[in-house]
Simulated scan of single mutants.
Amino acid sequence: MHRKQSDTEFFKEVLEGLTTAVIWVAEDERIRFMNGAAGEIFQLSPSRVVGSRWDALMPGLVDDISQAKEKKITIHEYVIEVLDPFKIRVSCTISPYELNHQRGWLFELYNTERHHRIVEEDERWHQYEAGNLLIRTLAHEVKNPLAGILGATQLLQKRHNPEDKEMAFLDIISKEVSRLKNLVDRMLGPKQSAEKDWCNIHELIRYVLQIVEGEKPPNVYVKLDYDPSIPEVLMDHEAMVQALLNLVKNAIQAMQEKGGMLTIKTRVEHKFTLGTQTYPLVAMISIIDEGEGIPAEVFDSIFYPMVSSKPEGSGLGLPVAQNVLRQHEGLIVAESEPGNTKFNVYLPLKQKEHA
């Protein structure tokens, strides 16, 4: 008897050490064991779940679990709704499994959310790069003749007296050409900067909120939810201010009419993939608003230059912000539905080099 008990404890320890989520359900369809990896997926303590029915934890997974009495079945793309409010996609395999002479089922869950996110980010980044390359090519082609027009206009201005009536038209040409030149420069985005220093992201957020304080409507409130343990991040401070400012302004404008809560949250993500590289630690800044959301027809294109869901928008704020993050090896990821639009800013955390 003692031998059997120690064997059971040994195998329980093995299951607890697995990174694969494992749940064992007895014949009465109640959960009798859940390992730590499964607890992480559901964001629940296994001790709270043991004894409850499996379909309370995973409603709608299968209509009848007895389908898996003789052979294993696999369900793909099952969505688990967890707290805060995130959704996790998993693949679940249910196998008939006897444990301690009791018949039951073994549930094995594989988190596919990370894989989906990497594929989606990679696809969106390639689309953004293609659009950005087109815009940059056009911008360069436009910039050259604009420089010629501006130079010719300045020469003509020197040949006329300030009181000449032609000067009024030349001033208009000069101002409009300068405006177009500035627009083209914004389309090209910020230049690569080598001026990077170690900065506290919470000080960065505080500075950005100070800038927008004057234009924030009284019916928009700010909620800060910080992880104070985040170390300093190597960044170009001015460029990051511009990137974060664009995102915060968009969030405030989305709540201009009806008001709401602007939430800025910071967290650390572990073993997070950005592009093709996986970083041990990544800082995440979430900017969340309660506005009407981004229309579905433009959502997949919001990081393209000249695409905007706002009638007065230039469509340059988000592409410029994304460009800044790419220069920092980071990324911006958007999620949107009415009443909950979230922009997650990811920045790799690197260790300071000490002499």
Results as ranks from 00 to 15, higher is better:
3 R>G: 08
3 R>H: 14
7 D>E: 13
15 L>E: 06
17 G>I: 00
17 G>W: 02
25 V>R: 00
25 V>W: 02
26 A>W: 07
30 R>K: 01
30 R>T: 01
32 R>I: 00
36 G>N: 12
36 G>F: 15
36 G>A: 15
38 A>Q: 09
38 A>W: 13
40 E>Y: 05
52 S>N: 12
53 R>G: 11
54 W>D: 00
64 D>K: 05
65 I>A: 06
67 Q>H: 09
81 E>Q: 11
81 E>F: 06
83 L>C: 04
99 L>C: 04
103 R>A: 05
116 H>Q: 00
117 R>F: 08
120 E>W: 07
121 E>H: 06
121 E>N: 04
123 E>I: 14
136 R>N: 14
138 L>M: 15
145 P>G: 10
148 G>S: 10
148 G>Y: 12
152 A>P: 10
160 H>V: 00
162 P>S: 11
163 E>T: 01
165 K>Q: 10
167 M>K: 06
168 A>E: 10
173 I>R: 06
177 V>N: 02
178 S>I: 01
186 R>M: 05
187 M>C: 15
187 M>G: 13
188 L>K: 15
192 Q>R: 05
196 K>D: 00
197 D>E: 08
197 D>T: 14
198 W>F: 11
199 C>G: 03
207 Y>K: 05
210 Q>E: 10
211 I>N: 14
213 E>K: 12
214 G>C: 08
223 K>P: 00
223 K>L: 02
227 D>W: 11
244 L>G: 04
245 L>H: 00
249 K>E: 13
250 N>Q: 05
254 A>T: 11
255 M>F: 04
257 E>P: 01
259 G>L: 05
264 I>S: 09
266 T>L: 12
272 F>G: 01
276 T>P: 00
277 Q>K: 13
279 Y>K: 03
280 P>F: 03
283 A>G: 14
289 D>K: 02
292 E>T: 04
292 E>R: 11
295 P>M: 09
297 E>D: 14
298 V>K: 03
298 V>M: 04
300 D>V: 01
308 S>Y: 02
310 K>A: 10
317 G>V: 09
318 L>T: 09
321 A>I: 08
322 Q>D: 03
322 Q>K: 03
325 L>R: 02
326 R>I: 02
332 I>L: 11
334 A>I: 13
334 A>M: 14
337 E>Y: 02
340 N>M: 09
341 T>I: 13
341 T>S: 15
344 N>M: 10
345 V>H: 09
346 Y>N: 10
348 P>Q: 07
349 L>Y: 12
350 K>L: 13
354 H>L: 10
355 A>P: 14
